[in-house]
Design a binder for these strands. Sequence first.
DNA 1: AAACATCGCTAACATTCGTTAGTATATTAT
DNA 2: ATAATATACTAACGAATGTTAGCGATGTTT
Lengths: 197, 197
Amino acid sequence: MARIKTENNLTRKEVIVAKAATLFREKGFKAASMRDLAEAVGVEAASLYNHIKSKTEILHELCFSVANRFLHKIDEVEAEQTSSIIKIEKLLRFHINEMIHHYEEVYVSDREWKHLSDPYLSNFQNQRRIYRKRFAAIIETGIIENQIKKIDAATAVLIMLHAISGIESWHRSTQKITADELEENMISILVGGLVNR
Amino acid sequence: MARIKTENNLTRKEVIVAKAATLFREKGFKAASMRDLAEAVGVEAASLYNHIKSKTEILHELCFSVANRFLHKIDEVEAEQTSSIIKIEKLLRFHINEMIHHYEEVYVSDREWKHLSDPYLSNFQNQRRIYRKRFAAIIETGIIENQIKKIDAATAVLIMLHAISGIESWHRSTQKITADELEENMISILVGGLVNR
DNA sequence: AAACATCGCTAACATTCGTTAGTATATTAT
DNA sequence: ATAATATACTAACGAATGTTAGCGATGTTT
């Protein structure tokens, strides 16, 4: 009888959720079956249900744990007494590092939240909308204070957030620059643009 | 007996593929069933198979028709005798407009290609990789010619391509700026950056 | 109007899916 | 050692999936 191996103080549920993140990223939520997950964990499919309520519950856990980290961060950044540019850069760096170091979860939360079911779905969409509005508000302040050029703040937010999700390609690429180089390049391009001056 | 309505010189197959694009975008390839598609088309599921070979064939058609449009465009742009910055801007504008006006197809091609099956899958991945290398090569030329600041070209490409996929959010948003405004804002931010100077 | 091809229908198929019930085994607490 | 709890197993379920076969209806050509 093959028990789920737990290490580093993880509960068995956490092991399952972590493996699920990898699987959901690789195949997508719908295409990843509970039998796939069971195999990855080293156990029979039915045994998973001793630890989780349902497949969808795993997605809940992933999506909301990621969302909460971003919400806490923007709370923290908003409270700071710094310029808008610095606030934006801090948020971007946080996004970049989350995407680099918690790749699987962040990616799944980003791409698979559609498969949540109500009331979690509307909940998640709301949080997302509000987060982006708060991000846009920081940019708008920067525009008013003349630190940021006159652009549509909402468009700037969607550009930046989606640009960061491109780190997916970095993860998959064979000839990687280092994580630090990636971070600096992204900040340089997103904040400063492409052109030389 | 409900026949598939064809208008604007579309074959019935093209009608099916177009409806499928919408459906695949909304629910994802795996979650969208042939019975869903049949309902959207106004026919029974089995009837679809008079026009298409399989569900996956629809995905092939979508992915490769989009990929071919981008390949033709980069052929055209590479052949021009213009600066790297202008070439990049032209490619970006093409991407933006494709995403605005052929939203469903482009989005599906971007997000659902994973569900292609070999040999189409490796084929698609190859095309994608080569396209990005050609894009990166243009950026590298611009760096050498000092028009573009010293950045990692591959990172710049992934930022730009993923940023553009963010137009998805624009489509979904209720308070839209116009398509032209969106295009100008995106070019301004991606090429020129955020900061005011 | 007859012949032919196109198209849509019903019915059914083999798989795969998430999940539950019931039972056996391992671990922990007494 | 014994009891209690946690965990895994086998077997099976009903539902949904992509797809095929066979037949009848529609549209087109002669």
